[in-house]
Design a protein around this nucleic acid. Structure first.
Lengths: 214, 214
DNA sequence: GCCAAATGTGTACGCCGTACACATAAAATA
DNA sequence: TATTTTATGTGTACGGCGTACACATTTGGC
């Protein structure tokens, strides 16, 4: 037992080893199964096998913990988008490549919202404590956040001639609106639990709509 | 003082008069300034000048009170939509009338989301306790809920030939997605506090997108 | 080896939702 | 009108939450 007292295990020594990590993991697990409201500080400390107040050595408040979980969730969303982007054949003609990029970021976004509703909701749970630098997103794997990835895709589209310059400004928000709305209906709204096939179908039609209507 | 001890007033007699109404009013006020999470039962009873447990004679739980507030908020959304629908000149040619209808319901929805972010969020706060008959909405003034009003507008569009039959199925959800997404970005998201003009502009462009892309 | 900094503990407070027994006013019945 | 039932508000209590403050223990630098 060279290394004991790890993240989820109930440690035996006074010191924990990496309590911050353990609390974050617990917070992520809680958010995964219930969204941001389910991230309760005392429960996280319980899972880490530590007294409630120990958390305050690593997070200044419950909200601070939620923020950390949100940063994680946002990076996961970014990764989901990047994964879809990576599937695009590089040899595609410019316009097709750009269109595929827009669809890819949308698909990744929708996919994550369906696969991890709780974390998705945590990632884009505005409402409270929105500080400018955190919003709309934190880091991704490529160093870009979800919003930046969307902007990039739309810029590709504009450059390739698929998006008239006069419609460029604010296009991120229009596309984001459409995709975000469907993501919510699917992840926690009336479309929750919809069969996979129908969900993908609806996602594709929504992206058609965005592409045609932008 | 023929009638005293009304809604917000702190009554003097043992009986309140209409505690249920007073609690609902308080709940609405709380939701208005902070969304569903701000609806705290004890505060509502405080505002009604009554002991906490008195609430349980009228609402079986806090969630029950929130549900009542949500029903109110939904009816207000419906009314906002109906108000916009009423502005449409009846003598318009069928297709134009149908298109105007779709825009009207979208505009009403967006307008309410901007004017009453807290209540809007309460109205469409899925996530918890979604029971089939309550979802997606409760009653409006015309007896229709927001979702039904949207469906009606889209049906007009389909009938007028503005929406190909093969694209009719699920069109409500596509349109709803787009509008709902923007409503969220505006009411509690990164677009919160955006100047009125820009907001309306963005709303119109979004509805353009929906119209062209559906 | 000693001291200071970092990290976990103990105790306590005021919120919250809500269960249960009790008090009182209004309505129904006689 | 007198009495009983029912509706409605009160009192007390419990456990859970976030978190403030003082205290204990370990670790790391000198």
């Amino acid at each position: 037992m060279t290394e004991e007292a790890k993240n989820t295990a109930v440690r035996r020594s006074y010191r924990h080893g990496d309590l911050r990590r353990a609390l974050l993991d617990a917070g992520i697990a809680l958010a995964r199964s219930g969204g941001p409201d389910a991230v309760v500080l005392r429960e996280a400390t319980r899972q880490a096998g530590v007294v409630p107040n120990a958390a305050y050595r690593h997070f200044s408040s419950r909200d601070d913990l939620v923020r950390a979980v949100r940063a994680y969730a946002l990076s996961q969303v970014a990764i989901a988008m990047e994964t879809e982007l990576a599937r695009i054949p590089a040899e595609l003609p410019p316009l097709a490549f750009a269109q595929a990029s827009v669809r890819a970021v949308g698909t990744g976004y929708l996919h994550y919202a369906h696969a991890e509703p709780g974390l998705f909701k945590t990632a884009f749970f505005f409402h409270e404590n929105v500080d400018a630098d955190t919003d709309p997103a934190k880091a991704g794997r490529s160093g870009m956040n979800p919003f930046q990835l969307l902007s990039m895709a739309l810029e590709r589209l504009a450059t390739a001639g698929g998006l008239p310059p006069e419609r460029r400004l604010g296009a991120e928000y229009l596309a984001w609106s459409a995709v975000h709305g469907l993501a919510l209906l699917v992840s926690e709204g009336p479309l929750h639990g919809m069969p996979e096939v129908q969900r993908q179908m609806l996602g594709q039609r929504l992206l058609d709509m965005v592409e045609k209507g932008l």
